[in-house]
Design a protein around this nucleic acid. Structure first.
Lengths: 125, 125
DNA sequence: TATAGTGTAATAGTAATCTATTACACTATT
DNA sequence: AATAGTGTAATAGATTACTATTACACTATA
């Protein structure tokens, strides 16, 4: 996985797990990969994984069972809130940043539409 | 100024100056505040300001004149590119993040519209 | 020429993040 | 009982960012 070197890795791992849960790549109640396994597949230290997970556990997104493993919460309310919060944070970020550039809401929509269209025509992946 | 403690301060200061230039709060050719003045008004160390400015100088956004001060470039091409780059980076960020949540372009537009409307109705500033 | 206002550079100390490593605790299975 | 697979905890070292501080270089002006 490629990390942004301007943002703490443990924090980016939190966001990554949020996403995996939201798209149900990790389903409610499902056991997530073992800490040492995650450390290998993300090529970071176990402690860094542990820091991310312990925050997710504090937030109630994951539930830990000592000796067994870590599991996605089955609490629907928490999971719905998670998706809403993550999406809204992203949208608000764009809104705030473009507002700071004196760009109007209508222009924001136009910029987004234009960007989407530019992705449709040419695919530079 | 309030900084995000997940992102280096010098980097946030760069973004701040980008914005001031884009909205022409700092105009082409204009002298920007002295380094020690910026350090006071942003309540950070002179070295931190210096790090941000030296990168802006390397990028050609600012021009320095030893003993005189720092000035916004008068190069129109650089300034136009700056605005385009900053705006597109923001839009791409939203697009990529929401794509990772399996959200379609149409849904992205809807989310943005909804957020904009929610800002119109109630103003919690 | 002295002084005030600029930018520039270097050093030292602190804090946060990440890595590497070791050790321990709990669970399930052989 | 032993073992393998989990999570948990603690220490030490490297790196980066930030601060504080001091000093120096250039420009303009009194």
């Amino acid at each position: 996985m490629k990390f942004d070197d301007k943002i703490p890795i443990y924090y980016q791992i939190k966001q990554y797990i949020y996403r995996e849960i939201i798209i149900e790549e990790l389903k409610p109640g499902q056991q997530i990969p073992a800490i040492r396994q995650l450390a290998v597949s993300l090529t970071v230290n176990v402690n860094t994984i542990q820091r991310a997970l312990s925050e997710l556990i504090d937030e109630g997104v994951l539930v830990t069972q000592r000796g067994k493993g870590n599991f996605v919460t089955t609490n629907t309310r928490t999971l719905v809130k998670l998706k809403n919060d993550v999406v809204e944070a992203q949208v608000r970020e764009l809104y705030d940043q473009l507002s700071a550039l004196n760009i109007s809401p209508d222009e924001m929509l136009l910029y987004l539409k234009t960007y989407i269209n530019s992705r449709k025509e040419v695919h530079h992946d």
